[in-house]
Design a protein around this nucleic acid. Sequence first.
DNA 1: TTCGTCATGTAAGAAGTTACATGATTAA
DNA 2: TTAATCATGTAACTTCTTACATGACGAA
Lengths: 188, 188
Amino acid sequence: MLGLLSFPGERTGYELKKWADSSLRFFYWSPALSQIYAELRRLETLGYVTSTRSGPEEPRTKRCYAITGAGRRALTAWADGEEDAGPPVLKHPLVLRVWLGHLADPVRLAERVAAHVVRTQAALDDVRQALERAQGVTDWAHPQVALRWAERQHLAELELAHAMLADLDRLPPPEAESQLPYGAPTDG
Amino acid sequence: MLGLLSFPGERTGYELKKWADSSLRFFYWSPALSQIYAELRRLETLGYVTSTRSGPEEPRTKRCYAITGAGRRALTAWADGEEDAGPPVLKHPLVLRVWLGHLADPVRLAERVAAHVVRTQAALDDVRQALERAQGVTDWAHPQVALRWAERQHLAELELAHAMLADLDRLPPPEAESQLPYGAPTDG
DNA sequence: TTCGTCATGTAAGAAGTTACATGATTAA
DNA sequence: TTAATCATGTAACTTCTTACATGACGAA
């Protein structure tokens, strides 16, 4: 939240959610709206953000948040501090399913990988749209670098899926007993 | 946990943790030991696993878990079921820091990316060790495919880091005012 | 005798999600 | 007039982590 607010301008919780959905989520994650609102209130008690209720000139009642000097210092302490931010964390349900391939129908498994390719292509389109929007804004050099990373990452994800598909194709056909319904219990 | 137990053999919670650390974590994640023990107890109440306390013949008191037929069916229902398992989720603290590069010293930022390369190379070695171990085991075709995916994924991660480093190098040098300590507050 | 590994757990709490609840504005 | 979007929140709950606590075994 502080990171999003560290770029010029004030935003509502709702706007922050949209921005996270369209950009942050490609290399980090997009929190639920309920968490965003809760977190903004928490950051305000910490003195890291200030909020202004919109007056009657605005069409809607909304609360706009801005980062404070203390908030910027706290954020910079993380972004430019000594501490190790930790390794990337990846949770890949598709690869988990492939890992459990002995329980699945090979044809269906391959279809799932193909579906993953389609989903990744759609995500890649979203990344590219975010990149286009980012290119219009000055002082967004670093977000652009992050989004270019995300674009290449999605391209790599496509290649990875194709290579895995080829690996699965090369697998010897399952034994006769495994051609019965998959995962038929043998105990318990 | 059910997935780990779906491969032949019985294991203790401790063994499950080691296996998750050395294999699962490369494409999914490795839960804390305390969670593993709690989850195994939960799965036992559901009838998805059974446990046997080791008798006096064993050197240590330990509890070995095995999957049941019901557990295998429940797991197969997930692994081979209709339901969408959802998109991969990535939390990449390094890219998040690059995204916030306007708050950081460019030299330090580049050093962080270089450190990420070193860390990824070490992780790649770990993946390859896991692959070697997996190659000795029969009926581990699918775990091998998942680990080959992880190997390629780590190679891609290295390329991605180098490309990002090049992008950062190409960035124009910061304005004079930004050469003061980074993130110097201008408000609040 | 000391350290690393094996082995199991409890308790507190952080982090995050879903479902629920409300209501105004805007465009078709 | 109806649906989508804008806008904000509460409550319950799940998930997961860290810190704490214990103790045996094996190797140096």
